[in-house]
Computed example of a mutant assay.
Amino acid sequence: MTTPVAAIQSVRLDDDNNALVLLDQTLLPNEKVFLKLSTVEEIWDAIYHLKVRGAPAIGIAAAYGIYLGVKQSKAADHAGFLNEFKKVKQYLASSRPTAVNLFWALNRMEDRLQREAGRSIVDIKRALKEEAENIRAEDEKVCLSIGEHALSLLEPGWGLLTHCNAGTIATAKYGTALAPIYLGQERGYDFRVYADETRPLLQGARLTAWELQEAGVGVTLICDNMASIVMKEGKVQAVLVGCDRVAANGDTANKIGTSGVAILAKHYGIPFYVCAPLSTIDLDCAAGDDIPIELRKEEEVSTTWYEKPMAPENVKVYNPAFDVTDHELITAIVTEKGIAYAPFEESLRDLMKEECK
């Protein structure tokens, strides 16, 4: 029995119990466990250890987290409350450096707090909760819109390849790169999806394959180093990926291995589409070289997923969590406001202007 994608809510607020409720993505696909986190430390840990992951979902979790972090504040005035707020904000911002949605959401929450200056602390807390709920609700609409725009680029019966997980469990609903797949499923497009396993944390194997299978989508899991052969055999007509940050020139940071997929797609003449909410576009970041790349623990490569170590003891391990895909390898960047094509410096700026209207 399949589960409709709409039934999976990976991030939500349980305000009555002062808790953030998260689907623990580290336990999938073997266990579907929802965590109730009541402290800022627990929420930081969940973001850092990928219990919640996916740029939009991280942003939503951070927004709820900062609200919960100051909800019990006893500050008597706005200045004292703001001081507490900034401490929580700085702490949560330290959890992961690459996904710009984390900082976007935290800054948006601070902007709302500042707009409420002069109101009572009770009213400010109420406003912060409202802003966090707005971020979640808006992300759902954004993902649906991205799905519609991306679907316009695809044809029924196509084979699609995706890397990492940019699905409903990485967002409020629908996902980014998986959104057109879900919409196509509803409309009889009969897509055939190839999901890269996505080493070393296996987000494709554990999450994308699980999520699509639960929704009844035809999905085939492949190892990362099999992407070339499925492209060469004509099984893939388009590549869809999400992203964690888009630089002003169109360079895009996404899960490690994405740039290699883009190079292969370019070689085989296959369109490579990046599905990105406008909140991931960082016009203050000129190019991919300016994007900070998170380095993670060596154990994720050598021991985490194995009963016994799969590498020599004390061998050096290099474990960047992301790589940067050069804008010249990207066919288009699909946003909720439309589709950006090269030159991305112009098209992305135009879309951001449209967002501000």
Rank of each mutant, 00 (worst) to 15 (best):
E140H: 13
T168D: 10
R108I: 00
E131F: 02
L178Y: 03
A150G: 09
H163Q: 14
I135N: 01
N165T: 09
N107W: 11
N134V: 09
Y174P: 06
N134L: 11
L144Y: 15
W158M: 11
A132V: 04
W158T: 02
G157L: 00
A137L: 14
K129M: 01
A172F: 14
M109H: 10
I124S: 02
I124K: 03
E155W: 10
I146H: 03
G167Q: 08
T171Q: 06
T168R: 14
L113M: 12
V122K: 13
I135L: 05
H163L: 00
S145I: 08
W158G: 01
G147F: 08
C164P: 00
G159Q: 02
E148F: 05
L153G: 04
I121G: 00
A177G: 10
A150Q: 04
I146P: 04
E140F: 01
R119Q: 15
R108D: 13
E110G: 12
D139I: 08
E116Y: 14
E138A: 07
T162A: 11
D123T: 14
A127N: 04
A132L: 03
A117V: 10
G118M: 07
C143A: 12
L128T: 01
R112C: 12
R119V: 09
E130H: 14
S145K: 15
P156Y: 04
E140R: 11
L153M: 14
H149G: 06
N134P: 10
S120M: 06
E110R: 06
L160G: 03
H149Q: 15
G147L: 00
A172G: 15
M109V: 01
C164I: 10
T171V: 11
A166M: 05
D111G: 07
